[in-house]
């Protein structure tokens, strides 16, 4: 007996439907069947009106991302499961069924032009260090499939106008290129670099397994810290200073160091509630007894790679 895949698909045509609905299909299962194969079978054999994108079929165009059982993935990469619900990506206007209008987000990502801005004229030959090339490979794997955007908690609350992981991936690619002349630190600060919640959700769904938290967020934050600018740079410095002073960290110490006495005083009502519940840690408290050990191993001389 041929095994079957049961697939429930989001259907909606904004021009004719009042509401979206879900339609269920049964598709004969084949070995190593991709989600894209399932959709193609439906389109060719069961329902030619189903709309979906499947372009390069080799994980490079980034256009075919949908939600597969609630998780974003490329239909040319993800294996079909016996029971599936397929839905369009969130946050975007629906053109029809699984097809969304990606232009609004792509325009924002491409506001960082995909070119190294060099001094002109470029002097040839143009030496590029091996480690720069290795570093550049990471962000250039991004195909703007928007899977990370669909799961990002910062994008969810800030809207894509303010926080877009693929935009930061683009910026990170240029920030490590010695030839580039744009102020990428400023650019990443303006792209709300420090609103990343460090949750790693983006990495879990990235089809090219880009280590976004380390190679993009931490790398860019490091440049911001080294330039000592912006709220993010001040925050990291305050954390480091608190750790060097006490050997451990506490919110009041970081708040005082990064935002100053005035802002810290504005938090006093919250502080009083915390004191009442024995949850307040004074920024002026004693360091840990082995503080000198901590200072020794995190001092500036220990920073060499």
């Amino acid at each position: 007996m041929v095994k079957e895949i049961t697939v429930s698909i989001f259907r909606y045509d904004p021009e004719s439907d009042k509401h979206p609905s879900y339609q269920t299909y049964s598709v004969p299962s084949k070995e190593r069947m991709l989600v894209g194969d399932v959709l193609e079978y439906i389109h060719e054999n069961l329902d030619g009106s189903l709309a979906y994108r499947w372009e390069c079929r080799m994980r490079l165009c980034g256009g075919c991302t949908i939600l597969i059982n609630g998780k974003p993935g490329l239909i040319c990469r993800e294996q079909a499961e016996p029971s599936m619900t397929l839905e369009p990506l969130p946050f975007l206007p629906i053109v029809r069924d699984l097809v969304v209008d990606r232009k609004s987000l792509l325009d924002k990502i491409y506001s960082v032009p995909p070119l190294t801005r060099q001094k002109s004229p470029v002097r040839l030959p143009e030496p590029i260090a091996h480690e720069v090339i290795l570093g550049l490979r990471v962000p250039r794997q991004c195909v703007q499939c928007l899977a990370c955007v669909a799961v990002c908690p910062a994008t969810e609350v800030l809207t894509a106008d303010l926080f877009l992981p693929p935009k930061l991936i683009q910026i990170a690619g240029f920030a490590i290129d010695d030839r580039d002349t744009v102020d990428r630190v400023q650019e990443s600060e303006e792209s709300n670099l420090f609103d990343c919640a460090c949750c790693h959700a983006c990495e879990e769904v990235c089809p090219h397994e880009i280590n976004i938290s380390e190679k993009v967020i931490t790398a860019l934050r490091n440049k911001t810290y080294e330039h000592g600018i912006g709220r993010g740079g001040r925050y990291i410095k305050a954390f480091y200073d608190t750790l060097q002073a006490k050997g451990k960290v506490n919110a009041s110490g970081i708040l005082l160091r990064s935002q100053g006495y005035l802002r810290a005083i504005m938090k006093a009502p919250q502080g009083i509630r915390l004191i009442a519940r024995g949850k307040f840690v004074s920024p002026f408290g004693k360091p840990i007894p082995d503080i000198e050990d901590i200072r020794t191993i995190i001092g500036p001389t220990e920073q060499e790679k």
Binding site: C198, E214, T218, R221, N222, Y225, Y235, I236, F239, Y240, L243, G247, K248, V249, I288, D290, D293, I294, I298, E302, Q303, K305
Partner: peptide, 13 residues
């Protein structure tokens, strides 16, 4: 002491 959370790796891995 502290494990460095998500912040110290920004200063230096």
């Amino acid at each position: 002491g502290c494990c460095g959370a998500k912040e110290i790796r920004v200063v230096s891995r």
